[in-house]
């Protein structure tokens, strides 16, 4: 464990990303404190589309709303979608993966076919289908993204359980006659926590990306709730004149997604002795 932590600590990219994500979480929680107006207040109708200034750090959008406020509240939406979808994926993926890895046979076959079907159709297209069927809006988006992205978590939990079943403590638990489900959830799963954490972090980064893509296509979170993807797609029409409209949400989206995926990759590399290298 200490070795893993030491390796993780050495990965500077990862540590910086971690700091950035903490800052963004803080900004998301204190959005109402650090922004001058509410996210839907059209307070600056007299200076529509004006460029960044001392009063409006990121300028004003085409509906007279302070753009800094919109971007900061966008952080709240993106991070919420990211983490909430990851939790949905966790609730679906972990039990399915654990059961598949533990019982093998028919259960495993069914779960793996399910995983296969979900990986043949590109996840963005699947998300588009589900959104048009069930409607958009924050709650639906979270559920849909969670339901299309459980397969990676499921696969890694399954693999981990199969490996753990070879270990002595599993045989010992079985020999004393503990019931299978209890062994699975009390003894095997707690040992698979590390890959689950990696899965959740990477999943949240992926979820933010899918949400941004759906919002970009106009089928994501409903206005006036600010979403970076929607802000970018609205702003791109003005790219030659009002550069601040597409630029700021793009930068924030990039930083958020990149940090999350660097953290996930960093933890995974730290866990993998083969890739850790000779250090």
């Amino acid at each position: 464990m200490l070795q893993i932590w030491n390796h993780f600590k050495k990965n500077k990219l990862c540590i910086i990303s971690f700091g950035i994500i903490l800052l963004l979480i803080l900004a998301a929680f204190s959005a109402s404190l650090i922004t001058p107006t509410g996210y839907a207040d059209m307070e600056y109708l007299n200076k529509i589309n004006s460029f960044p200034s001392k009063d409006n750090w990121f300028g004003v959008d085409s509906m007279g709303r302070d753009y800094f406020t919109r971007v900061v509240y966008g952080t709240r939406v993106s991070l919420f979608v990211g983490f909430a979808s990851a939790i949905v994926a966790l609730i679906v993926g972990v039990p399915l993966g654990a059961l598949a890895g533990y019982f093998k046979g028919t259960v495993d076959w069914v779960v793996m076919r399910l995983v296969e079907i979900f990986s043949v159709i590109p996840s963005l297209l699947l998300a588009m289908f589900f959104v048009t069927i069930f409607g958009n809006g924050l709650k639906n988006i979270v559920l849909i993204i969670g339901l299309i992205s459980w397969r990676n978590i499921c696969r890694s939990v399954r693999g981990e359980i199969i490996v753990l079943k070879e270990k002595e403590f599993f045989l010992a638990a079985k020999a004393i006659g503990i019931k299978p489900l209890r062994i699975l959830f009390r003894h095997l799963l707690p040992n698979a926590v590390a890959p689950i954490i990696v899965g959740v972090v990477l999943c949240s980064s992926h979820a933010i990306m899918i949400e941004a893509m759906l919002s970009f296509l106009g089928i994501g979170v409903n206005p006036p709730i600010p979403s970076w993807g929607k802000m970018i797609s609205d702003g791109i029409y003005y790219i030659q004149f009002y550069w601040h409209l597409p630029l700021f949400p793009s930068i924030f989206l990039t930083i958020t997604i990149l940090s999350l995926s660097l953290i996930g990759d960093g933890i995974r590399d730290a866990l993998d002795p083969k890739i850790r290298g000779k250090s």
């Binding site: 990219l13 893509m213 990039t254 997604i257 990149l258 995926s261």
Partner: peptide, 22 residues
Amino acid sequence: FTLFSSYAISVPIYVTAIFMIF
């Protein structure tokens, strides 16, 4: 290079397109 590859994999392509247009 790791930073570049993480960027290329995880950030939506339209964001890069916007940066390139800029």
